[in-house]
Design a protein around this nucleic acid. Sequence first.
DNA 1: CTTGACCTTCCAGTAACTGGAAGCCACATA
DNA 2: TATGTGGCTTCCAGTTACTGGAAGGTCAAG
Lengths: 140, 140
Amino acid sequence: MNIGDAAKATSLSPKTIRYYESINLVVGDRLTNGYRNYADAHIHKLRFVQRARGLGFSIDDCRALLSLYEDQNRASAEVKNIAKKHLQEIEAKISELQGLRETLSHLVAHCAGDHRPDCPIMDGLSGVLHDTSEDESRLH
Amino acid sequence: MNIGDAAKATSLSPKTIRYYESINLVVGDRLTNGYRNYADAHIHKLRFVQRARGLGFSIDDCRALLSLYEDQNRASAEVKNIAKKHLQEIEAKISELQGLRETLSHLVAHCAGDHRPDCPIMDGLSGVLHDTSEDESRLH
DNA sequence: CTTGACCTTCCAGTAACTGGAAGCCACATA
DNA sequence: TATGTGGCTTCCAGTTACTGGAAGGTCAAG
């Protein structure tokens, strides 16, 4: 299987597959003409990585997960630890973004959005804290 | 005001302030000895950028916001548009992460996490869809 | 006059690709 | 057989927003 077909089979781009090879994540075979060649086992690994990346796992996590994937004697606890850590990171990110959304949606809601220069959003960014002490806590 | 004091006054690092200068975002003065020098107006701009970055605005957004900040005749609608667009991006990101959290927390919850190799997380990443059709939709 | 803290510039690295150029390879058609 | 088209190769650069570090200049204090 050439790289183009492997790309179609894995929903990855040829570029990405070459990149994964360059970082030694998934390395396929080579034909005598220099073309990369992918067997089923490679395709499975690439798809595995594609799904893991789709779940937001870092390349380093993918590397660890791949080696567990190949390990017949793995303990599921190891997999679970990686996943739990990633889950916590996701939850932290969600919290952070929810905080930003809070602040931003308040600012946006209070801005007239017309032709005049007066703007609570600008005031907020300038450090002119207008209303409540909540706003201050949001911006510091 | 030297860059170190400016850094303290703005909660930015000297490196970051130099970086902002290198991309022409906020450029201070220079003393004859080559040292950067920051007046109040510069400090205000830097703090403005610091707050905007803290709210997740991109550097490009900061550039646009700064020029509106300096524009006496700005329309608040322009500010609001930038903020609204950013707010939408944040909300999209939150949704995406919530989806990942859903999938991942299900997988983690069903993994025994012991010494045995059997692992629903691995199954999910391998494309072995175990339970409901919900899981399938989550992984595709 | 030296020490230490500051400042300067410049280069490289981060994460995970993506775009593009230059050139080889394979196959079908005229 | 020439040629066109598409796919393959490598390599370099760019993306975002900094951060680390090296090599060296400057300044105030003792």
